[in-house]
């Protein structure tokens, strides 16, 4: 089993970490370079974690577990206006990122109000491309209950956050409800506020675990990190993508950030060592996000094999 970890350390000799991970059969998911510091999101076989820990210690780096690594979470606010941003939404998104998740912030076009709140088909489909969603609501329980219509049709687990305490049975369509973080006009800095952010991360972690366990019942033909590695090798144009993360990982596939019409055939033609083509074991379709390519790996029950 692959263990998701985050390495933070100096730029000097960080290539030793990269080489070790590759030798161990792990994957580098993301590489963030900030002047002389580097942050690597890594998947490493759990039995070899001690070797990586020893190297990190030798390089005076820090290696922490990143439970959300390799997942994409949507942080949804009713709009992108000053009422919801920057404090609550950015704090939650940033906190999820620190735990390894790839976070996208999404403001609905008409999500405001109590009676008039709406979500459209495009927004729903875009949220469904993620592995989980966090909906950020306000301070009045009446409104939070009423706004259930916004996430009722979303098929990924939805963690709802808001101010007041509300019993779980009153929000049947939410995966979990995390109270004590409604609309606020200051940054989260008190211990209680940071504690609430921790609870959101735990809740998202549980939501992802639920998805992982349902995938385990009918495993994917191959793992998304392996697809990511092969696409990176065989579609070299991906390294010229302006996006900070040219291939985003999901639990069930990847999103390749290249124009769909120009590169779909190249992505389909990606071949694995076993001789199988990506187009045979995955559906390649246009993503709702810009003009990207969405790769969804088929499960073993559909292809009849796992490699």
């Amino acid at each position: 089993m692959l263990e998701p970890v985050m390495f933070t350390g100096g730029l000097y000799k960080h290539d030793l970490v990269v080489e070790l991970v590759e030798d161990l059969g792990g994957y580098i998911l993301q590489r963030n370079l900030t002047q002389t510091e580097i942050i690597l999101l890594i998947l490493v076989p759990s039995e070899d974690l001690a070797v990586l820990q020893a190297l990190a210690k030798e390089l005076r780096g820090e290696l922490v577990r990143a439970p959300l690594a390799g997942t994409e979470v949507a942080v949804v606010t009713p709009t992108l206006a000053i009422h919801h941003l920057p404090h609550t939404a950015c704090d939650i998104a940033e906190y999820l990122r620190r735990h390894g998740s790839k976070t996208n912030m999404l403001g609905l076009a008409r999500g405001v109000g109590r009676e008039i709140a709406q979500i459209n088909e495009y927004e729903t489909a875009l949220i469904n491309e993620h592995d989980a969603a966090v909906f950020i609501f306000g301070n009045f329980q009446e409104c939070i209950k009423k706004k259930e219509s916004l996430y009722r049709n979303i098929s990924v687990p939805v963690v709802v956050t808001g101010g007041p305490e509300i019993e779980a049975k009153e929000l049947p369509y939410a995966f979990e409800y995390v109270p004590a973080i409604g609309r606020v006009a200051h940054r989260a800095r008190k211990a209680t506020e940071i504690g609430t952010l921790d609870r959101i991360v735990e809740s998202v972690g549980r939501a992802l675990d639920k998805t992982r366990s349902s995938i385990a019942k009918d495993p994917l033909t191959t793992s998304p990190p392996r697809v990511m590695d092969s696409v990176r090798e065989q579609v070299p144009d991906v390294q010229f993508s302006y996006s900070p993360l040219p291939i985003a990982l999901n639990l069930t596939g990847v999103r390749v950030k290249l124009p769909y019409s120009a590169f779909k055939d190249a992505v389909k033609a990606v071949t694995f060592d076993e001789g199988v083509k990506l187009g045979e074991i995955a559906t390649i379709k246009p993503s709702r996000m810009k003009d990207y390519i969405l790769v969804r790996i088929l499960s073993a029950s559909e292809t009849g094999f796992v490699f």
Binding site: N139, F140, Q141, E142, V184, A185, H186
Partner: peptide, 23 residues
């Protein structure tokens, strides 16, 4: 003053108004 069982909302809005007016 907020109608219904919204004591939390009332308390939070007090903080919110203070924050914004102070800002």
């Amino acid at each position: 003053e907020v109608t219904g069982q919204e004591e939390f909302g009332a308390k939070k809005y007090r903080e919110l108004i203070m924050d914004i007016l102070q800002d």
